[in-house]
Amino acid sequence: MAQFDDGKDDGALRTIGEVSEALDIKPHVLRYWEQQFSLLKPLKRSGGRRYYRSSDIALVERIDRLVNHEGYTLKGAETVLRAEAKSEHDRRLSGERRSGDRRVDAADSAAPGNATERARRLAETLAGLKRVRDRLARALEA
């Protein structure tokens, strides 16, 4: 998680400038990502000033990792994030057994149908299909 050295509480709202500096991501990139990722919705106050919650900052870090370090396209990263959000939502719904029972079965998180794993396999399949398409295009040009 990003480290802020501004004296604010960890859960405090942060401006786009503070997030940009802490994560070393330009403000225009953060604004662009807000357009591309429907899950990224920082609070907006009068005059359009953005305030990022802790969850928004964590999401920006996840987007940065997927796009800039793991090689996902923006659309692929969006797919992964949506699958993770759906998986988390489903886990919460299934966890509402009893108010004190917050456990998640190990089988649920390690199941082959895990949304993150499915998204990863989908991205690999898509990359393979693109390679085949490129080979076919080169063959047709010859």
Rank of each mutant, 00 (worst) to 15 (best):
M1R: 06
Q3C: 02
Q3S: 11
F4T: 01
G7L: 09
D10G: 10
G11C: 10
A12K: 06
A12S: 12
A12L: 04
A12H: 05
L13R: 07
L13S: 11
R14N: 07
T15E: 04
I16L: 14
G17E: 13
E18T: 08
E18P: 06
V19T: 08
S20T: 02
L23Q: 07
D24I: 06
I25H: 02
P27D: 00
H28P: 00
V29M: 04
R31P: 01
R31G: 00
R31A: 01
Y32R: 00
Y32L: 07
E34H: 02
Q35T: 15
Q36S: 13
F37E: 09
L40A: 06
K41T: 14
K41I: 10
L43G: 08
K44M: 09
R45D: 11
R45W: 04
R45E: 11
R49M: 09
R50D: 06
R50M: 09
S55E: 15
I57A: 10
L59V: 08
L59S: 05
L59E: 06
R62Q: 14
I63G: 05
D64R: 15
D64K: 15
V67Q: 04
E70V: 07
G71I: 05
T73A: 08
K75I: 12
K75W: 01
G76K: 04
A77H: 03
E78M: 05
T79H: 11
V80S: 02
K86T: 09
H89K: 13
R91A: 15
R92H: 11
R92N: 13
L93I: 12
S94Y: 03
S94G: 10
S94Q: 14
G95D: 11
E96G: 04
R98A: 15
D101I: 02
R102S: 09
V104P: 03
A107T: 12
D108Y: 10
D108S: 12
D108R: 12
S109G: 03
P112M: 04
P112F: 05
P112C: 01
N114Y: 12
N114K: 03
N114H: 14
A115F: 03
R118T: 03
R118W: 00
A119R: 02
R121E: 12
R121P: 00
A123D: 10
A123Y: 03
A123V: 06
L126Y: 08
L126P: 00
G128C: 04
L129C: 14
L129D: 10
V132T: 13
D134E: 15
A137N: 08
R138T: 12
A139H: 06
E141Y: 01
A142E: 15
A142G: 13
